[in-house]
């Protein structure tokens, strides 16, 4: 553990700061930062498959949405049953990773590569979006939960122990829960990256055939990574649904699908920590610009993206991180 901290002083310090944040900020900023952190998991999942394995999925939002909808449908159906706010989450994640398994199997065992993976995953997320948009009618009811079409679902319980005072994911509990989960995800992702499986996955990016000829099961490794990434996207989806008490088909649309790709690429897809910080930073930035910039907000956001890829091809956050570590001797391990 100490060794881990020694090697990663910057992440450690960042998380230390994040964990003391709630003392200094009011409930609004607390829930707002929780909201920013909700989005980090889908980015981390994409960084895993894209940054390490070179698999660019343009449709991670399908897992985001599927998890959100599954959670909503299950929890609404069993409203009032003991512990529904806990086990419905696990069930939703199970459904999501099963779907990830099916999609991943289709992709990797079907011999689909490169940009085609992007198009297929995009098509899948658009299919689900298009289908759900038109489910406003009463015939689209699962148990007691209406899918409610384009306008989206609401009325799900808050995640957690409904009976306990601080047992639900809101306010402080929500903040610390998401933070802990993010730390855990980062540690596990680093472990995966440095494991044998992770190294094989990294090698598949460079040359699939050579890795296969060395006797490794390329497809299996890719599939495992893909399922993990779908699970992470699902976590984002559930946390987002819980945060706003609401999930809609547009969270699986073209614009939503492009966002994680943009976040990951602009932050630095090869480094999980940069992706974590970068996602928070970019979501915050676009919100700030919307508040202060009025109609120039979107233009400013676009300029930042263009400039950062033009001049910082490895990602702007990763570049800053490396600069910082270079300048501050103490941060070096």
């Amino acid at each position: 553990m100490l060794n881990l901290i020694k090697k990663n002083k910057l992440p450690f310090i960042s998380f230390l700061i994040l964990s003391f944040f709630p003392i200094f900020i009011d409930s609004y900023y607390l829930s707002n930062i929780s909201y920013f952190m909700c989005w980090t998991f889908i980015s981390l999942g994409l960084a895993l498959i894209w940054g390490i394995g070179g698999v660019l999925s343009f449709g991670q939002t399908v897992f985001f949405g599927l998890a959100g909808y599954s959670f909503a449908v299950i929890s609404i159906n069993f409203l009032g049953v003991v512990g529904v706010g806990i086990w419905s989450v696990f069930l939703a994640l199970l459904i999501t990773s099963l779907f990830g398994l099916i999609v991943g199997y289709f992709l990797f065992y079907g011999g689909i590569y490169d940009v085609f993976i992007g198009i297929v995953t995009l098509a899948i997320t658009l299919v689900l979006e298009t289908f759900l948009q038109q489910t406003a009618g009463p015939e689209y009811t699962i148990g007691t939960a209406r899918l409610n079409g384009f306008n989206g679902m609401q009325g799900m319980p808050t995640i957690g122990f409904q009976e306990l005072k601080y047992g639900r994911l809101e306010g402080f509990t929500q903040y610390y829960f998401i933070l802990t989960l993010a730390i855990l995800a980062l540690i596990l992702l680093y472990k995966f990256k440095n494991s044998k499986l992770g190294l094989i996955f990294l090698a598949t990016k460079e040359d699939r055939n050579r890795v296969a000829s060395l006797g490794y099961n390329v497809q299996k490794v890719q599939l495992i990574a893909f399922v993990i990434s779908s699970l992470l996207a699902g976590i984002s989806g559930i946390l987002y649904t819980n945060w706003g008490g609401y999930i809609t088909p547009s969270s699986m649309g073209l614009v939503s699908a492009a966002l994680p790709v943009v976040w990951v690429a602009a932050s630095g897809k090869k480094d999980f920590f940069s992706v974590f910080i970068g996602t928070i930073f970019l979501v915050w930035l676009s919100q700030m610009l919307a508040i202060n910039g009025a109609q120039f907000a979107i233009i400013a956001m676009g300029l930042i993206l263009v400039i950062s890829t033009r001049f910082f091809p490895d990602g702007i956050i990763l570049m800053f991180k490396n600069k910082l570590i270079e300048k501050v001797k103490w941060l070096q391990s």
Binding site: Y28, G244, Y246, A290, I291, I298
Partner: peptide, 17 residues
């Protein structure tokens, strides 16, 4: 007043704000 940019997630963010 906030500009919600015809985006549902902006509505949620700014309603809370």
């Amino acid at each position: 007043r906030y500009d919600t940019q015809s985006d549902n997630t902006r509505f949620q963010e700014f309603a809370r704000r």
